[in-house]
Design a protein around this nucleic acid. Structure first.
Lengths: 193, 193
DNA sequence: TTAATTTGCCTAAACCCTTTCGGCAACTGC
DNA sequence: GCAGTTGCCGAAAGGGTTTAGGCAAATTAA
C-alpha cells in the first residue's frame, strides 16, 4: 500500500488547521489520523504522543505570531507600535482561534525557553522604548500589556462580552488610548491614594 | 448495600475540590465516582453528563467569587475598592485554581444569564462610581478592568511570568496603581496621538 | 539489478473515560 | 407489611491513547 508521506511538520500544520476548525481541545491523534485517512498508530512514528502534538502546535503558533509581530513593528514607534502589536495578536486570534488557544498552552520550562516566547517579550519591550520607562517599571509595564492584551482577547474569544453595546471594536480602540496615556504618564512607585 | 447519599450539590462540591487538586480539565465523572467509591454509572442519576458536571462547578465558582467580591466591596470606594475586588479574584485563583479555571468555562447563553456572571459585572460597575465616568466610557472601563485582572491572573496562574525579577507581587501592586491613575484620568474619546 | 537495511504504516490489544439500559435493592408512604 | 419510587450497580457499546510486533515500501549497497 502506498505511503502517506507523513512528517512531524505536516502533522503539526494539519493539527493547527484542525484546531482552528474545531477548537484546540478537540485536536486529537485520532482526528488527525482520520484527516489523513491513515491508521491512528501511524502517527506515533512522527509524534511522541498527544501532548507532544499539542506542544508542537503551540510552538508553531508562537512562532507565527512572533513573525507577524516583528513585521508589524518594523518602522513604528510609540502609540502606533502599541496598537500595531496589539492588533497582530487580536487579528491572529480571530483568524486562528485554535492556534491562539494553543499558544497559551503551558509549556515545560525547557520547551518554553526554546520557544518564541522570549521573542514576544522582547517585542513588547521594544515598544516601551518609545516611552520613558526605566528598568523595574519596564518589566511591570510589559506584564501589564501582556495581561490586558491577552486578557481582552480571551474574553472576546469566548464570548465574555456578549453582544452588548457598545461594540467591542470601540472598546478595543479606547483601551489602546488608555494604555498609551498610561505609558506616557506612568505613575511613580509610592502612589498616594 | 448501603446507599452513598449522593446529590447533585454534593457531587458539585466534591468536583470543585477535585478540580483544585488535580486541575479542572482532569475533573471526570470517573474520577469523581472513584472518590465516592461508587460505580461510575451511579453519578448519572444526579448529573446529566460530564459537561453538566463541569457547568455546575463553574456556576459554583462564579457564585462563590461573587459573594466574596460583594463582601470585600462593602464600605469601600475608589482605589481601595478597586484593589479589594482585584485581590478577591487573585486570592481565589490561588486558593482554588481549579474552580477559577472552571469559572472561565464558556456557558451557553441561557445558563450564563442565570449565573452570577451579571453580579460580577455589577460589582465592577459599582467600583467605577468612585471615579468620574459616564456611560459609554463606563462600559469600556468595565471591560478593561476585566481584561487586566483576568488576564493577569491567567498569566500568573500558568506560570507565564516565570520566576524572573521583579516579583509578581510588586507588579500586581503597580498595576493597581496604574489602573487607579487611569480611571482618575480617563482619556477622552478622540485621543490625539 | 538485486540484496540488505531502514523506515513507515498497519493490525491487534490493553486501558481509560463516557453514556445508556435494565435490574435489583433500599428507602418512602400508606 | 406492601406498593411505588428512587438510587446504585453490572454490562456493554463507542471513542481516544498508547504500545508491540509485523509486513511492505523506500533507500542504500553491492
Amino acid at each position: 500500500m502506498a505511503r502517506a508521506g507523513l512528517t512531524a511538520e505536516l502533522l503539526t500544520r494539519a493539527g493547527a488547521e484542525l484546531a482552528d476548525e474545531v477548537g484546540f481541545d478537540q485536536v486529537t491523534v485520532s482526528a488527525l489520523a482520520r484527516r489523513f485517512d491513515v491508521a491512528v498508530a501511524s502517527l506515533y512514528s512522527h509524534v511522541r504522543n498527544s501532548q507532544d502534538l499539542r506542544t508542537r502546535i503551540a510552538l508553531l503558533a508562537l512562532d507565527e505570531m512572533a513573525a507577524l509581530a516583528a513585521d508589524a513593528l518594523a518602522g513604528r514607534a510609540g502609540r502606533d507600535a502599541l496598537t500595531a502589536l496589539a492588533n497582530v495578536y487580536r487579528d491572529y486570534a480571530r483568524e486562528h482561534p485554535g492556534r491562539y488557544t494553543a499558544a497559551r498552552l503551558r509549556l515545560d520550562p525547557a520547551t518554553a525557553a526554546a520557544s518564541a516566547g522570549g521573542r514576544h517579550a522582547q517585542l513588547t519591550r521594544a515598544i516601551l522604548r518609545g516611552y520613558d520607562l526605566t528598568e523595574p517599571d519596564q518589566t511591570h509595564a510589559v506584564r501589564l500589556l501582556g495581561s490586558v492584551i491577552h486578557g481582552y482577547i480571551s474574553l472576546e474569544l469566548d464570548g465574555g462580552f456578549g453582544h452588548s453595546a457598545p461594540d467591542t471594536a470601540e472598546t478595543w480602540a479606547r483601551i489602546m488610548d488608555a494604555l498609551d496615556a498610561l505609558l506616557c504618564n506612568w505613575p511613580t512607585p509610592p502612589s498616594a491614594a
